[in-house]
Design a protein around this nucleic acid. Structure first.
Lengths: 243, 243
DNA sequence: TTCATATTATTGTATGTACATAATAACATG
DNA sequence: CATGTTATTATGTACATACAATAATATGAA
């Protein structure tokens, strides 16, 4: 394989080295426990310093793609776990996929100053108002989830959109924003006064809290979402397969 | 805070720096978007080179614990979801990956007739005993998770294995069983008498329940696991990316 | 042939230096 | 007071050098 680094490129040398190493990792020649070229040789071939090369190598080791042993060498790591899930869907898409007809009980839009935690996630200051969306949703029998969402100003929501439509469809069709990455934290907590009032459940009863951080294609934060679910009405499922 | 690095220690300087930074990350003084000491100052205080310090900083940035911006500074990242799906790991591997030292408070093995639900999952009858493993685990401060596991007879566990080792390692090394698929249901519920006794929490307080169905490489069921987590001690994180 | 020792190969640790880039603060001007 | 310019601050990139640690291999002695 011909190793190539463009010393005139504006792309940093350690990033180019990283990309090249990723190609080596995918090359069948280096599968099955075969050693990669050693650091000294590779840095000479690429005409970059060993330190710069090691910076790239370190990153790939942290990611679990490479393993190294002093006195031995560097190899492609054994394939690791990955997770596929339906978590990607917006709530309405999710319920539709489950065949559950959903009713909206409340919808409330407001412009608020973000709390510090929200501002930090969006990487904005707390002195400018952002759009907050509150929705109470459930089945005909009654509500079972209370949502609070905040949106990054960059998204461009005006507050006058039709929020009965799936949210990510609105973002995509009307604001050219494509949600692509979602990170979630699921935890249990006791219902406080607000939540027990919204969900028609006793103060202190268990609630499933689902915090969701949504990013666009450039990994920029676009939405911060809190979902409070009645514990008796919702089970979160995840499937993970070793590859 | 008093920064300290032992130049005489056999522990590498960059590892000590990393550990110290982890302490800074946990220090309330640096929460909420506050800046960490800058690189030049910190390296001087620790009497290590800036390159060595940056090696430690880089690792924590890759792990998602720190964020940096040129011309601005370094901050603790938002208490974040893990960048890798941990769902696949056994509990001990998971906690190790998070750097949380775990203590076993109780371990109880027994042979029991499976309940119908368990028998259905394993596709066996209810008239033959299977191995049940109960473990109460947590930090030094106290237990925070109570596990109940059942194993398919095909796995071949005798009950005399060393269950302080990671479970899937035992299966793989001693029983040639490779766990490959995991399906989970996460929900919230109120602590009943048994659970509140085990986890030292009030009757009725919120518990995060994690039901896990584990299959081998041939998609055959091998383990059914229930994890009851104190709500205040555990957050389940998932990352999903649109493909 | 086996074992001990030396050598080689490769990664790991650490430093200091120099310059580039981005963001913020300070200052000047209209 | 608003705007533009300059200086300062902090991280990012890159390098050469030196030595340490570990593991594998080669060599020589018994």
């Amino acid at each position: 394989m011909q190793f190539k680094i463009d010393h005139k490129s504006p792309i940093p040398l350690h990033i180019q080295a990283e990309n090249l190493l990723r190609e080596l990792i995918d090359d069948p020649q280096y599968q099955g426990g075969k050693f990669l070229p050693n650091e000294v040789n590779l840095s000479k071939q690429l005409a970059i310093s060993r330190t710069t090369l090691r910076q790239a190598l370190n990153k790939l080791v942290y990611e679990g793609l490479l393993t190294r042993k002093k006195g031995v060498g560097t190899k492609v790591a054994q394939p690791s776990v990955s997770s596929k899930s339906m978590n990607w869907l917006s709530f309405s898409q999710e319920m539709k996929a489950r065949g559950i007809p959903i009713k909206n009980f409340e919808l409330h839009l407001s412009w608020v100053f973000p709390e510090e935690k929200v501002a930090n996630f969006f990487e904005i200051k707390t002195d400018k108002k952002i759009l907050k969306l509150e929705r109470l949703r459930g089945r005909n029998e009654g509500p079972f989830v209370y949502f609070v969402s905040y949106f990054h100003p960059r998204v461009g929501l005006t507050g006058e959109e039709d929020f009965t439509r799936p949210l990510y469809e609105i973002l995509e069709k009307e604001h050219m924003v494509i949600a692509q990455l979602s990170k979630e934290e699921i935890s249990a907590r006791a219902a406080d006064k607000l939540i027990s009032g919204k969900l028609d459940t006793e103060l202190g009863s268990p609630i499933l809290l689902r915090k969701r951080f949504v990013y666009d294609q450039a990994d920029r934060p676009i939405e911060y979402n809190l979902g409070y679910y009645r514990a008796d009405s919702f089970v979160y499922t995840v499937e993970s397969r070793r590859e």
